[in-house]
Design a protein around this nucleic acid. Structure first.
Lengths: 332, 332
DNA sequence: TTGAAAGCGCTAACAC
DNA sequence: GTGTTAGCGCTTTCAA
């Protein structure tokens, strides 16, 4: 491992000068001659220096570890988020401590643990039902100088030192509507999903603009494939009202419906078009393949770490909104 | 954060004595009076002491960070493994550095990086095609005092300081065979999968013991649902040979086949029984639900960290083989 | 059996 | 602009 000491020896300066050149946030008023800076940077590069964050934060009275709060679920997008975070963390030599959970009590334990260990910052993706206590915990943490990046905060928490990365569900829903409209759908069906209302709102808004309406089913449990579909088909025997467009705010429900309809001899992709949300694992492997919305969670993960690291070193980081993308397969 | 200094003050001993009591591997020849040990342990417990691994390893000339090499895929089981590792790492205050990759060159970079940062140890799940270079890298790393836990090593690498956690694919395949036999299957079909040969071997062995045989299809691409099934069904018009049992070594293929067959009016779960392997996300949500083998990757993750931590502190850790479990749903 | 003190790699206050 | 020095929390050598 290359240390400041070795660089200092090789460059002919003291360790302190080398530190001031290489430190991500040197103390205020640190002045270095431009020539010295260049020389030391060159030597560091040549020797392959990688900072020892552990020692850096030890001195500052803390630990470089970044706490990551992640939903305790097997969904594909959490995996993508984790991957993005890990990738950037690796590049920047930040160790990570993951906390898998999906409860408000767990979130509280997580925050307290983060404070107790004097970790350098927090990335949080609290994917459970929003609760005022979250906002309080975030305020408490940031109020004491903590830095946090929150995924899908949706403007519910605000605090200095808090930066949000949201993924735009509303426009994702709109993309599905546009696709179904383009494919010539006349009637639309959608399953309620209270966890992600914006996906529906985006979908319905786009449909309403065209003067068409959406039938809404309370839950996937009440989706009686044979009944609903035979009803819909018979109502429109003249075939003029085909295809019917179905949108569910999660792939899980879309896959249930696809496999239920397949058993009823419904031609999915022709008479009935189905689109889901999330591009979960296996969504590409049902027949017909599921048209769905892919969320840029890898990007969210990478950006969250970049922003957090900037904030940790006293720079500003702006919140951002990421736009999802429609993946077209055979189902719609 | 409670430090040794505070405990020393509260207990009325020097920091050195407290360190000897609380350190996970005190230097050889450290003697402490039993009464002192108890007293200091009590105080530490009362104050809620959690060791500062960063400082501990700084002194020892390294970093507490554990490097984790994980396949760069969205499969559910990687997520479970990561979760298990994170859980134990959190309990033991070990920071983690994940390296998502699926190439031998990446594995080499990972090992070199681990050495460069003087990380405390490695958990590796190299899920790509086995290569002699892996064995060499492992030998090199462990030869220089590195500690490693390998997931699904399958006895391919050996080195002092290496401990393996394998999941028994052979018995997993056997479980599926037993289920299909119990359900009265007379004929069996299986899709080749060269990545996981043991799953097939376990399956076919159990079938062969009963004197029955397995038809083998080279790949899922060549599974022409209509052709294969109409052939099979017509061959056994008398219905005496129903149900037909199909086993694929991955859920992905099983889901493809289920959704293809559904379109052909085949009664899955009655005339044709299908089982997959892996219990991937969505496998529970196709219709009919997929009978499959769930691998104990959460346990593997937890145990890998426990074993690694033991080895890091100079204790021995034994390799182990974990047994998967059959999840019965409607498809078989 | 216990304590004093050095030092891991780095930063920051202070001196020059 | 640059160097000196103390110290973050812990382990370990050496001395008592």
């Amino acid at each position: 491992m290359v240390t400041l000491r070795e660089i200092a020896a090789a460059a002919g300066y003291s360790i302190a000068v080398v530190s001031r050149v290489l430190s991500p946030c040197p103390h205020a008023g640190a002045r270095i001659a431009e020539k010295t800076r260049e020389h030391i940077s060159d030597v560091a590069l040549r020797l392959g220096y990688r900072p020892n964050r552990v020692a850096e934060f030890l001195k500052r009275g803390g630990s470089p570890v970044i706490g990551v709060y992640i939903p305790d679920s097997a969904e594909t997008h959490s995996g993508e988020l984790v991957k993005g975070i890990c990738l950037e963390a690796g590049l920047n030599s930040f160790p990570l401590a993951f906390f898998y959970d999906a409860t408000i009590d767990g979130f509280q334990r997580f925050i307290l643990e983060t404070i107790n260990f004097r970790n350098s910052g927090v990335i949080a993706f609290p994917a459970f039902q929003f609760d005022e206590r979250i906002a309080e915990l975030v305020e408490m943490y940031c109020g004491h100088g903590g830095r946090m990046v929150m995924i899908n905060n949706l403007e519910r928490c605000t605090a200095p030192g808090l930066c949000s990365i949201d993924i735009d569900d509303f426009s994702g829903g709109g993309m599905v509507a546009e696709r179904l409209l383009t494919r010539g759908c006349r009637r639309f069906l959608t399953i309620c999903n209270h966890t992600f209302p914006a996906r529906h709102e985006g979908f319905c808004r786009k449909i309403e603009i065209t003067g068409k309406t959406c039938e809404i089913i309370a839950s996937v449990k009440e989706f009686d494939a044979e009944k609903v579909i035979s009803m819909l088909l018979s109502m429109h025997q003249n075939k003029n009202n085909l295809p019917i467009g179905i949108f569910t705010a999660s792939d899980l429900e879309a896959v249930e419906i696809i496999t239920m309809l397949a058993k009823c001899n419904v031609k999915i992709g022709r008479d009935v078009l189905i689109a889901g949300y999330g591009n979960q694992y296996l969504a590409a492997h049902v027949h017909p393949g599921l048209t769905t919305v892919v969320q840029p969670f890898l990007t969210a993960g990478r950006n969250s770490l970049t922003k957090l690291s900037a904030m940790i070193y006293g720079k500003d980081a702006e919140s951002e909104k990421l736009i999802p993308e429609l993946i077209i397969r055979e189902s719609a």
